[in-house]
Amino acid sequence: MILIRLPTPNWILKVNHILEKEKIPHQIIPTPKELDPSCNLSILIDEIVLEQTIQLLETNEVPVDDLLRVSNEI
């Protein structure tokens, strides 16, 4: 699984909206505190859709903080 980190929950919601529109399966989850101590959220996607997601993020000028490979249990 890939965890997408963005600077603010508002950006997460924007990405959520974009992915929903494109019917890309994803999940909004609390960002693990060791990655971000604030109340931020992250988006979790399957690696299969990573390339498509990156393309969408670039097209929509979304400033990604991090893309992290994480375990399925997160």
Binding site: P7, T8, P9, N10, W11, P37, S38, N40
Partner: peptide, 16 residues
């Protein structure tokens, strides 16, 4: 703002 809580300065991105 619920974002960048570790920072003491206001975020510069919108809408925060």
């Amino acid at each position: 703002t619920g974002s960048k809580s570790e920072e003491e300065y206001q975020p510069v991105f919108l809408p925060d």
